[in-house]
C-alpha cells in the first residue's frame, strides 16, 4: 500500500471507524455515570450544591501553593502539555478545517511557526512527565498499563504531526497518513482509558464541590 493509499484509507474508512468508536464509547461512558444516579440527600444543603460544584470545576484548575511546591514538575509540565495540546489541536488551520467539516463551526487559526513551537513544548512536557513517572518509585509503582498506554497514544499524534509539519523522517504523505492513524488510535483508546478525564473531570469536580457545598465546607 502506497503512502497516498494509506492516507486515503486513514481519511476515509479509518476515520469513520475510529470516529464511531469514539462517539459511541464516550456517550456510553458518560451515560453510565449519569444514569447511575445518587442517593437522594434529604438534608437541607448549607450552601447549595450547584454553585459550589461549578466553582470547584474552575478552582481545581489552579494549583494550590503546597501541592505546587511538593511537585512543581508535574504542575508545570502538566500545564504546558495541556495548553500546548489544546492550542495545537484547536488552532492549527488544517485541524480547524477538519472540525469545521464535522461541526460546521470555524474560527481563526494560529501561524504555523507558533503551532510548531507549541507542539515541541507539548512533546517535551509529555517526555518529562514520562521520565518523572519512570524514575519516581512511588509513581512507578502506582502506574499500570493504562497509564503508559495513555501517554503513548497521546504523544504519538503530537510527534507524527510535528514530523509531518516539518517534512522529517518520512515523505509528507506517509507521515500525514501515520499522523491521522495515530489520532485514530487515540480516538479508539480514549473512551476506555483514563483519557476520559477530558469529559469526566467536570462531573467529578462538580460532584466534589456539590458535596462540600451541601455540608457547608468552603471550597
Amino acid at each position: 500500500m502506497s503512502g497516498i493509499e494509506l492516507l486515503n484509507w486513514a481519511r476515509g474508512p479509518g476515520l469513520q471507524i475510529a470516529g464511531a468508536v469514539f462517539v459511541i464509547g464516550v456517550i456510553v461512558r458518560l451515560a453510565a455515570i449519569l444514569l447511575l444516579g445518587r442517593k437522594t440527600d434529604l438534608s437541607r444543603p448549607r450552601e447549595g450544591a450547584m454553585w459550589p460544584g461549578l466553582r470547584t470545576v474552575l478552582t481545581r484548575s489552579i494549583p494550590d501553593a503546597g501541592t505546587f511546591r511538593r511537585s512543581p514538575l508535574v504542575f508545570i509540565a502538566g500545564y504546558v502539555f495541556h495548553l500546548g495540546f489544546l492550542l495545537t489541536l484547536l488552532f492549527y488551520a488544517p485541524h480547524i478545517l477538519l472540525l469545521k467539516s464535522v461541526t460546521g463551526l470555524e474560527w481563526p487559526g494560529l501561524p504555523v511557526s507558533l503551532i510548531d513551537v507549541l507542539a515541541v513544548l507539548s512533546i517535551t512536557a509529555l517526555v518529562a512527565l514520562f521520565i518523572n513517572r519512570l524514575i519516581d518509585p512511588v509513581r512507578r509503582h502506582l502506574s499500570r498499563c493504562g497509564d503508559w498506554l495513555a501517554l503513548l497514544v497521546t504523544v504519538l499524534p503530537l510527534v507524527t504531526g510535528y514530523l509531518a509539519l516539518n517534512r522529517m523522517l518520512l515523505p509528507y504523505t506517509d507521515m500525514l497518513a501515520w499522523h491521522i492513524l495515530s489520532v485514530e488510535l487515540l480516538l479508539v483508546v480514549f473512551p476506555f482509558s483514563k483519557l476520559m478525564h477530558t469529559f469526566s473531570f467536570v462531573l467529578a469536580r462538580w460532584y466534589n464541590g456539590a458535596i462540600a457545598g451541601r455540608k457547608g465546607v468552603q471550597v
Binding site: L15, V23, I27, P94, S101
Partner: peptide, 19 residues
C-alpha cells in the same frame, strides 16, 4: 486535505444513536 473523505453525518448520526 485535512477533512475526512465522505460525509461525516453518514456515520456520526448512527454512532450517536447507537451510543
Amino acid at each position: 486535505l485535512s477533512a475526512p473523505i465522505g460525509d461525516s453525518s453518514d456515520w456520526a448520526a448512527p454512532a450517536i444513536a447507537a451510543g
